[in-house]
Design a protein around this nucleic acid. Structure first.
Lengths: 163, 163
DNA sequence: ATAGGTGCAAATTCTTTGCTATTAA
DNA sequence: TTAATAGCAAAGAATTTGCACCTAT
């Protein structure tokens, strides 16, 4: 089987959070309380929160954090190569830590996001770019699908459905 | 060769414009002067203009057309299945008529958009969705690439660089 | 000490909408 | 005729920014 669902069962609630903080520090970023909290929130998320959701979760830990700071921090982390930003079709940007490479399939009926990875796909994309005379720097890909009757939610390994 | 650049040399300045107008009428849309002009602009474009650019080009033909009308028309055409909307990373939405299926590669150095189509890619995407338990409804894909030295602009068949 | 960060509110940017006058069918 | 449309300006939603005050390093 080429494509396999990924990202469902990783135990990353605390470990990845700390490593995001670590990676921030390693990048030489000034670590304020706010950034630490935001890093923990994003690193500990197993979904793809938008800025407001990150702010909501961060506020639960430290009520003083402003939305502007979340925007600034998320931008900073992205520019530092620690986060990736996604556009799932609703107006807002969604974020996740940059762990293993994967792409997303969006359930058109629920909005749920399923992660998958497929080496053959990446090889093909690289080859296509190459044939057009380009070195593939990165790509944006979302599949939009409708569950096949009978095996609908099966691939969605316990992921919270994002509204 | 699997992927081939497409969309560069089609003679569509007038023919596709008329056919977009025709398709609008065929869909039962009320054809106002504004819609006719906007249809001609979009149908005649060989690039991927955003709303402001469409408005600019439409205004050159009929100065009375408002931006709001362009937004409404573009939305209408999209909902009628006559247009596709793209997000190339800059904030605004880009549009093009829905002709043959293709995807886009964006030159990271210039922002130029190269169209390509690759049947093997689409087959693979369908298969991936299928393996995850989904019927592939549609997909969003952009490759971001850097020209390989020596054969840089070669694949870009006379396409206007979109700022 | 001080360059850089934060909060707040105001500003931007892209897009949608309420309302009245206009028009295609 | 009359329901749908256009223009205009005001409203929204997401994101950015100016400024005075704080704080990691």
């Amino acid at each position: 089987m080429a494509a396999q669902a990924a990202g469902a069962g990783q135990a990353m609630t605390d470990e990845a959070a700390r490593s995001l903080e670590e990676r921030c520090a390693a990048k030489g970023l000034r670590m304020t309380d706010q950034r630490r909290v935001i890093a923990r929130v994003i690193g500990g998320a197993d979904d793809h929160p938008d800025v407001e959701e990150i702010h909501r979760r961060a506020s639960a830990i430290d009520p003083g954090i402003s939305l502007a700071t979340v925007y600034r921090t998320v931008r900073l982390f992205e520019d530092s190569g620690l986060l990736s930003r996604h556009d799932f079709g609703d107006g807002r940007a969604r974020f996740e830590t940059l762990h293993h490479h994967h792409d997303h399939l969006i359930d058109i009926t629920t909005g749920a996001v399923i992660e998958f990875q497929d080496p053959a796909l990446h090889a093909l994309l690289r080859r296509i770019a190459d044939e057009l005379g380009f070195h593939l720097v990165k790509h944006r890909l979302e599949l939009i699908g409708r569950p096949i009757d009978g095996r609908a939610g099966g691939a969605n390994g316990g992921k919270r459905s994002p509204s």
